[in-house]
Amino acid sequence: MRALPVGDDALLVEVASGAQALALHAELVRRREEGRITVREIVPAARTVLLDGLAEPARLAAELTGELPPPPPTPRGVVEIPVCYDGPDLAEVAAYWGVAEEDVPRVHAAAEFRVAFCGFAPGFGYLTGLPAGYAVPRRATPRTAVPPGSVALAGPYTGVYPRASPGGWQLIGTTDTVLWDHARVPAALLSPGTRVRFVPVRAGGAA
């Protein structure tokens, strides 16, 4: 664990893995809830946790050189996202994985995912959980418009587009689940640490 200063009031804490970043994020959120640190934002990412708007960055940097916190208890609830596996990139993903196209849904739906971090757009989670060896590259040419609800893969991550946007991820399916609704509390269905399962459905929504 290494804490890098960012400007005058932020720290970027580097760890060795996404799982460690999630554990550190949970620990830092706990400390903030206990009033032990004063910080505006705690932002986990692929291998880091950013603390922005931090009252005493030097003190926390000194504290964070020691051992990593133990992983937090696994949250009980699992968010289920029904997916119609009808994406235009299924064949490409199947080729990367070395499986038949019709086996992509089985492999994907068998995994249990965690939201490693969020970014790109409000409510867009970077989900990890596919077995090692199932990473896929981004598309060479990004699409100018990806429809909302698209379930997509890039690198080790699965994501669901909360709204229409350009995107370079491999599209494997679609869901009707609303990922982000700012009138809802909470607005984001997925936040760092959330457990997720994808449940295959046929086109039209029936299981």
């Binding site: 960012v6 400007g7 932020a10 970027l12 934002e41 932002v43 986990p44 990412a45 692929a46 291998r47 880091t48 946790v49 950013l50 922005d52 971090f117 970014g119 970077y126």
Partner: peptide, 10 residues
């Protein structure tokens, strides 16, 4: 670089 948190003024 793996994605990481960004601050104002970065």
């Amino acid at each position: 670089l793996p994605s990481e948190g960004m601050v104002l003024g970065a």
